[in-house]
Design a binder for these strands. Structure first.
Length: 433
RNA sequence: UCCAGCGUAGCUCAAUGGUGGAGCAUCCGGCUGUUAACCGGAGGGUUGCAGGUUCGAGUCCUGCCGCUGGAGCCA
């Protein structure tokens, strides 16, 4: 009955002095004798509703002292500006109607362990902190789309069910496809390349799946990746793109999510430092730096978490590392014409020890060479014939990269683990809720 | 798969081999501006499971299960 012309808490500033009805959930409550405070949350914000004995009926006054956490309610009242209230406004309540009394909400206003919170992930999302992280994720994704759309890229979606591995070495999730063995995609990359021949500048954006038994703060088995691919671009072009792209998305999220960064107590001066130019090192130079800092990595070793942390901590902005040993990289990566042992690839490491957020490079565009690589990697040639057509019919130099959304959100938010950066994380042997 | 740590009230944690406690949550009461409000009171336990050592095990030993962190792996 009170459900008429509902106002969102986000917009409450437009209704100062007026009577409004809010709908939401009880976030917390406090009382002080003759005044009761109910914190109401509606998913767009939180506002304190003040219940005074003189303003409301006795049963409503009693209810305001009893209503349990996360009960769903309508509250009617007058919006008042008040400096004592967080957010600047509070609601002087005149009435409250219960939709449902919530009994024994598991997540109390108190510290909880990660195991418990992950079990109640669907409820945990209601908390201030998780709300802020997921909102930043949404704004980041919007900024990513805007960037590519505004730069002349066409969104060309790539399939999630695929007939073969992109990289044979990785473990894939197998799916039974009407009796046929297929796999969940681990990258849109191979499809992006013919798409670039059709549309010039393309990107795909979707979930990817890795059945790796990785149990670290940087790994999920299901994660989101945006992958641009540019026709006639070389390694340097794609590095310039990655640099410009990162500066744009960081600036956009910074300007749109001030409030959320405050909730997370994120030191945003660290993000404000993300400006061109980014430092660029070759793999060989990076190994030298590591050795200077006491890390025993030898030329030819791939970098692990420790190495990425040391290197990225040396700079206040993202670090680009190029020219890795070809043996560390995928079959489709073009070799350096000046040194066959090196790949024309680039990894971008986020600052503050967050590690790799972008991987990419120039693609091998010669048919013969690519056929050889597929053989060397012991990949099923038949599954790649369509891909090889890109090299048969008007082959062209092209480059691209992939950005991991969750690792980027973790960096932006200053989180120690990627599991909080996606609403429902899928991790090693963890798929509930 | 390997290494390490942990498993005690709904939650977060205490408890020298000798009668299992506290804070929060819940319930009862108090307080006219609280900010994870506060103050007083009450209820709440197969100490992950199975075995062993001991007069006596939450505590020591063995196995199993689960969780957390890390490694390997990994655009």
């Amino acid at each position: 009955m009170m459900k008429k012309k509902l106002v969102l808490i986000r917009d409450i500033g437009n209704y100062e002095g007026r009577e409004v009805t809010l709908a939401g959930w009880v976030y917390n409550r406090r009382s002080s004798g003759k005044v009761r405070f109910v914190l109401l949350r509606d998913g767009t914000g939180i506002i304190q509703c003040v219940f005074s004995e003189k303003d409301v009926a006795p049963d409503i006054f009693e209810l305001s002292d009893r209503i349990p956490q996360e009960s769903s309610v309508y509250v009617k009242g007058v919006v008042r500006k008040d400096l004592r209230a967080p957010g600047g406004y509070e609601l002087v309540a005149s009435n409250m109607e219960v939709i449902q009394i919530a009994e024994d909400y598991p997540i109390t206003p108190k510290e909880h362990g990660i195991e418990f919170l992950m079990k109640y992930r669907h409820l945990w999302l209601r908390s201030r902190r998780q709300h802020a992280i997921i909102l930043i994720r949404a704004r980041l994704i919007r900024a990513i789309r805007d960037y590519f759309d505004n730069q002349g890229f066409i969104l060309v979606d790539t399939p999630i069910l695929t007939p073969a591995a992109v990289e044979g070495t990785t473990t894939l999730f197998e799916v039974d496809y009407f009796g046929m063995k297929t796999y969940l995609t681990q990258s849109g990359q191979l499809y992006n390349e013919p798409n670039a021949a059709a549309f010039n500048k393309v990107y795909c954006f979707g979930p990817t799946f890795r059945a790796e038994k990785s149990k670290t703060r940087r790994h999920l088995t299901e994660f989101w990746m945006v992958e641009p691919e540019v026709a006639f671009a070389d390694l340097e072009d794609i590095m310039d793109l990655a640099e410009d792209f990162l500066c744009y998305i960081v600036a956009r999220v910074l300007s749109e999510c001030q409030e959320q960064f405050k909730v997370l107590e994120r030191d945003i001066t660290k993000l404000e430092a993300v400006k061109k130019p980014f430092p660029r090192l070759t793999y060989t130079e990076a190994v030298k730096k590591l050795n200077e800092h006491g890390n025993p990595t030898k030329w030819g070793d791939d970098f692990g978490g420790d190495e990425e942390t040391i290197l990225s901590s040396l700079y206040d902005r993202p670090l680009m590392i190029t020219h890795y040993p070809a043996q560390c990289k995928a079959f489709y990566m073009k070799r350096d014409p000046n040194d066959e042992n090196l790949a024309l690839g680039v990894d971008v490491l986020a600052p503050e020890g967050y590690g790799e957020i972008i991987g990419g490079g120039e693609r091998e565009d010669d048919l013969k060479t690519l056929e050889k690589r597929i053989m060397e990697h012991k990949l099923p040639r038949e599954a790649f014939e369509w891909y090889l057509d890109t090299r048969r019919y008007g082959t062209f130099p092209h480059s691209g990269f992939g950005l991991g959304v969750e690792r980027t959100v973790a960096w932006l938010c200053g989180l120690s683990h990627v599991r909080e950066t996606i609403p429902y994380p899928r991790m090693l042997e963890k798929i509930y809720p």
